[in-house]
């Protein structure tokens, strides 16, 4: 059993673009649920819009990558508005069902063969990041995301972080977005604005009776969280192809697990949670098959790789029941209020 190999592959996930994407979307969920108390079960939809908005902006509309990124963000804002105007007056669990259904509608529209020219249907889209990516596309061509990479070709870093210039560029871009995002959210939730949305989380009637426009605050929180979701999707799209099969409800549930792992009502919770989530995922995904191969587990390696998904579910149950404030959260900060 290659213990060192497993540990090294696992460690690389701390700086993985997927981890960063989860952290960004998780930050959005923290704004939604942890601070404003909005039960958004459709984060996958926001992420899909970020990723597809970006890809379609480049491939269909021929926009430069940085403008296309704003198409993705813009799409998520429009989605938040469409979703929020009618639903923010609903009870919490209704909002959960409406958001999950809306995210599914988005996924089905991205999947249907009716719009294959734009969405790529079941194949998804690729080649929008320009040369150096997976597939060359003349439109994206020069001026694509990969082309904006100022790092000279080559391998950098040290194991387990020994990677090529593209991977490092992704990490740096992701790191910057994440750092700015975390600072922004930290500022927000520690401001009078944050006080209001935390108040709404506790009891929106009370906040309304004090003269605050509760609906507007909830909408702002929904949009801000949604934009972070879109940024997460964008991060995924920077790093790889987009495919509607990624943006399924399970993705939302995984995000919730990562969020609750780190602590929902904390700014750094989503970061820590995503890192733990993906490191554990990678570790168990390599460990169990290795154990199975070594004959230490009584099933084949494909089955062994599935165990971790079962564990995610179990972890989610245990977290919610026994440690709703997350591993690092303060017990007083978040008990489920509604």
């Amino acid at each position: 059993m290659d213990v060192l190999g497993i540990l090294s592959s696992t460690a690389s996930f701390i700086l993985d673009p997927t981890t960063m994407a989860y952290a960004l979307a998780g930050l959005g969920l923290a704004v939604h649920f942890g601070f404003a108390g909005l039960l958004n079960m459709g984060m996958a939809g926001f992420m899909a819009l970020g990723a597809y908005g970006y890809a379609i902006g480049i491939l269909t509309f021929g926009l430069p990558w940085y403008l296309a990124a704003f198409v993705g963000i813009g799409a998520s804002i429009v989605f938040a508005l469409i979703l929020g105007i009618p639903t923010l007056r609903l009870r919490g669990d209704y909002l959960a069902i409406v958001t999950i259904a809306a995210a599914e509608i988005i996924r089905l529209f991205l999947l249907t063969s009716a719009f294959v020219d734009v969405t790529g249907s079941a194949d998804g889209l690729s080649g929008f990041n320009g040369p150096g990516g997976t597939v060359t596309n003349p439109i994206a061509g020069a001026g694509g995301f990969n082309d904006s990479n100022p790092i000279p070709d080559g391998e950098y870093g040290f194991p387990p972080f020994l990677d090529d210039e593209r991977t490092w560029y992704l990490r740096i871009v992701g790191g910057i977005i994440l750092a700015v995002g975390v600072y922004f959210v930290w500022r927000l939730v520690n401001s009078p604005w944050g006080r209001v949305i935390k108040g709404i989380r506790e009891d929106e009637e009370a906040v309304r009776s004090l003269g605050k426009n509760v609906f507007a605050y909830k909408m702002q929180a929904l949009i801000i969280g949604g934009v972070f979701g879109a940024l997460g999707g964008l991060m995924l799209a920077f790093s790889t192809n987009v495919n509607s099969g990624v943006y399924v409800t399970s993705l939302t549930f995984f995000l919730w697990t990562a969020l609750l792992l780190g602590g929902a009502a904390t700014v750094f919770g989503p970061l820590v949670g995503s890192a733990i989530f993906w490191v554990l995922q990678a570790f168990l995904g390599l460990l169990f098959p290795a154990l199975a191969k070594a004959g230490l587990l009584p099933f084949d390696s494909i089955q062994a790789a599935q165990i971790r998904f079962i564990l995610i579910g179990v972890a989610l149950v245990l977290l919610v029941v026994f440690r709703p404030q997350g591993i690092f959260g303060n017990k007083k900060e978040l008990t489920f209020v509604k």
């Binding site: 604005w193 006080r195 209001v196 935390k198 108040g199 506790e202 004090l210 008990t335 209020v337």
Partner: peptide, 20 residues
């Protein structure tokens, strides 16, 4: 508002705050 401090509860009452 149980999970806000007493002081935060009070500050929430104040009107016309730019920071909101």
């Amino acid at each position: 508002l149980g999970l806000l401090t007493v002081m935060d509860n009070m500050k929430l009452g104040s009107t016309q705050q730019t920071g909101e």
